[in-house]
């Protein structure tokens, strides 16, 4: 190929080839960069920043700082809340179902009432931990990648709704969701006190009137 032919080809290429678009490059590079996690977490752009701390006004219960919380008694335990594959290393994982380990979590209104399956929110394998940096369930993007699929316009605030809400009647709820526990228990106490006063009150009243009525009838009969 002569230099002249090469120059014509290059000019032709410049004129005819489509203009390069930055986004296409980012998509391509991003896809390859996170391909190993793509199936789990969806696609994430290169320009993503690290998650910020929670808003001082809107906070998820039990989550402080960046959501990293280690207890003294389990500091040596692999914290599965931050893994790219949350089920990594679990024996016989392929033969298990979600319910076999997460029976309590399966009983939630999204599942029982609307028929949403676990994977519709938590994605297919490998399922990233909810607090993993690239997880779709990470609080920085949960509202957009998960909640907004059904709740159009969902905000980060909405995503703090606890889908797997603990039973407010369980004493353990006081630790994990104290607002729910104490608000519910206050109203439960009011209900119990009201019914404990008015049900015996009603029964005694009925009984007393019945006795009075019979006594009056007997007196009328004697007269």
């Amino acid at each position: 190929m002569t230099p002249r032919t090469l120059a014509v080809l290059l000019v032709g290429l410049v004129i005819l080839a489509p203009e390069s678009v930055a986004a296409q490059e980012e998509v391509a590079s991003g896809y390859y960069k996170y391909r190993d996690r793509e199936a789990s977490t969806g696609y994430f752009e290169e320009y993503e920043v690290k998650p910020r701390g929670p808003s001082p006004f809107i906070q998820a219960p039990g989550v402080t700082g960046r959501g990293m919380r280690y207890r003294s008694d389990d500091k040596n335990v692999w914290n599965r809340k931050f893994l790219a594959d949350s089920h990594r290393g679990i024996p016989f994982y392929q033969n298990r179902t979600c319910e076999s380990c997460h029976a309590g979590e399966v009983r939630n209104m999204h599942g029982t009432r609307v028929g949403i399956t676990c994977r519709q929110c938590h994605s297919s394998e490998p399922i990233a931990s909810i607090n993993h940096y690239y997880s779709r369930m990470n609080p920085i993007r949960r509202h957009a990648y998960v909640c907004a699929k059904c709740h159009e316009g969902a905000s980060g605030s909405l995503a703090t709704y606890v889908v797997h809400s603990p039973n407010p009647e369980d004493s353990g709820t006081a630790e994990v969701f104290p607002q729910l526990y104490y608000a519910y228990m206050a109203l439960r106490l009011l209900t119990l006190v009201t019914l404990a006063v008015f049900i015996p009150h009603t029964l005694l009243w009925g009984l007393r009137e019945l006795i009075a009525k019979r006594r009056r009838r007997r007196e009328d009969h004697d007269e």
Partner: peptide
């Protein structure tokens, strides 16, 4: 719920539901 979450945290709807 979407409109409510603009003014109060989403977890308050857990409370609202049970209350």
């Amino acid at each position: 719920p979407v409109a409510t979450a603009r003014y109060v945290p989403g977890w308050t709807m857990n409370l609202a539901l049970y209350l």
